[in-house]
Design a binder for these strands. Structure first.
Length: 467
RNA sequence: GGCCCCGUCGUCUAGCGGUUUAGGACGCCAGGUUCUCAUCCUGGAGAUCACGGGUUCGAAUCCCGUCGGGGUCACCA
């Protein structure tokens, strides 16, 4: 049974877009293999914990349609799925390691640790803990018994090659001399990431650890742990990390990174996911637009590249525009109403406007800019119309005579005026467009005027004339 | 700096020894359709496949080196 997982930490505002990417891959892979996708909350860093973050992460994931088979919310047989509720487990396993001499207690002060590291740095050697406590465990244990604060450290063996096969990158080899005696259990009783992932991935029977590239260098520590416990290794696959335009790791200083931000901007969940799917992976037939079903069908880990792709919001916008164009009108209408719920928009007008703006907006939040004039009279005009009052008056008078207020009739009536006055269509319609919408750019004029209604159109024209 | 990963148009990528004068997509430019914009259609610019050595009849594709970029070196994940 294939089991994948993501392990977000509630230490930010929301789930990071890079984590959403990892989540989508993990989810799709589990679906493809008929396995299970698990969401586990890694809330072991009490100092960086953000109130409400866990809930936000879960709800954003849900908004994107990435539903876990097991999680803190839906439960599952391998719970609890929140690490802060598994503390005794880690402690137990850490002690097992100590008893096997694979780990040891350490009571060194932070001052001493930084001192040691500084000195090593000065000598230009890899800064590592010097195993000072390892050689005097009896004394250390006595002091702990007397109340000394302690941590548990992994006893990393010297000069040993740790080799593992990464499904995306092939064989990766690291010598243990480059590894520090990682803290496993912190003095506050919480495990570190390294301890917790290994224990939980094992206990939760995770078969494939699919995570970002930044974890490659700590994978040997994890492998050492698996070996110390005598557990079978999962399969590792390290995904490329998404980058800022300057190629550094995607960060909030240089890019919007919270997954919900994209939703708030009017990006569609499936468009974002579709775009993300193309980061490092390509469809065998080079298709760019595909749904979940097709992605699940075609995705393979072997096909993902190891290069870090730059997150290009321009292409995401294009893709979102494609999704909007293909969307059902009723669905788009609902999205618009939701986006502008504060404005309490007239549903009928929104519905009528959808076909007009569908291929003109790339994000739902561009709706107001292009169609706002259907709900409110323009307060300013992008072009001065004071020398056009004669034309506007004629048009208003003609429009009044239109019996059946349809797009065609409105168009014909206005064309007649233009011909009568001998004004080129381009110039003529631009004048009307600005009088009606206030803008040089608008959805098709006749259709917009039909939506507005005869009375409103005439009033708008006359308002300009009388100003 | 040590260790690890990576290196095809500005960006996302196809390519897995010969079908390649390196293909597609976004973006950009030009033209067409059009009362604006957008859509749509057509065309264009844009990559000496980072560089240098090999291997081979033949390399973007295999090997080595160099350079460049990134990641990581915490009682953070």
């Amino acid at each position: 049974m294939i089991r994948t997982r993501i392990a977000p930490s509630p230490t930010g505002e929301d789930i990071h877009i890079g984590n959403l990417y990892t989540a989508y891959i993990n989810w799709a892979y589990a679906k493809k293999m008929g396995g299970k996708f698990i969401v586990r909350i890694e809330d072991t860093d009490r100092t960086r914990l953000v109130e409400g973050a866990e809930q936000k992460i879960l709800s954003t994931l849900n908004a994107y349609g990435i539903k876990p088979d097991e999680s803190v919310e839906v439960g599952g047989e391998f719970g609890p799925y929140r690490q802060s509720e598994r503390l005794s487990l880690y402690k137990e396993y850490a002690e097992e390691l100590v008893s096997k001499n694979k780990a040891y207690y350490c009571i060194c002060s932070r001052e001493r640790l930084t001192e040691v590291r500084e000195e090593m740095k000065a000598q230009k050697i890899v800064p590592k803990y010097d195993k000072y406590c390892l050689g005097r465990q009896d004394e250390v244990k006595r002091k702990i018994g007397a109340g000394a604060e302690c941590v548990v450290r992994l006893n990393v063996p010297a000069n040993q090659e740790v080799v593992f096969n990464d499904l995306i990158r092939g064989e990766i080899k690291i010598n243990t001399n480059n590894l520090d005696d990682q803290v496993l259990l912190k003095s506050d009783g919480y495990p570190t990431y390294h301890m917790a992932v290994v224990v939980d991935d094992y206990l939760m029977k995770i078969s494939h650890v699919i995570r970002a590239e930044e974890w490659i260098s700590s994978t040997p520590k994890h492998i050492l742990l698996y070996q110390a416990f005598g557990w079978e290794l999962p399969i590792f696959a390290h995904l490329p990390i998404l980058r800022n335009p300057d190629k550094s790791k995607l960060s909030k200083r240089k890019n919007p990174v919270w997954a919900s931000w994209y939703l708030e901007q009017g990006f569609l969940p499936n468009a974002v996911l579709n775009y993300l799917a193309l980061m490092g992976w390509s469809h065998p037939e080079e298709k760019e637009l595909f749904d979940h079903e097709e992605f699940i069908k075609e995705f393979t880990l072997e096909r993902v590249r190891a290069v870090g792709p730059i997150f290009d919001i321009k292409k995401l916008e294009w893709m979102n525009g494609q999704y909007i164009m293909k969307m059902d009108d009723s669905n788009l209408k609902a999205q618009i109403l939701e986006m502008y719920q504060d404005k309490k928009l007239d549903e009928v007008i929104v519905e009528k406007s959808v076909p007009l703006i569908k291929e003109r907006i790339k994000k739902v939040n561009q709706y107001w800019d292009i169609a706002g004039f259907l709900f409110e009279r323009p307060e300013s005009f992008e072009k001065d119309l004071s020398d056009q009052k004669d034309i506007l008056t004629s048009v208003a008078e003609t429009l009044k005579t239109v019996e059946s207020w349809t797009t065609e009739n409105i168009g014909e009536a206005m064309q007649e005026v233009a011909q009568e006055k001998d004004i080129p269509f381009g110039k003529f319609f631009m004048t009307i467009r600005i009088a009606i919408s206030g803008k040089k750019i608008s959805p098709p004029l006749n259709d917009s005027m039909e939506i507005l209604g005869k009375e409103e159109c005439v009033e708008r024209l006359m308002k300009v004339v009388n100003s």
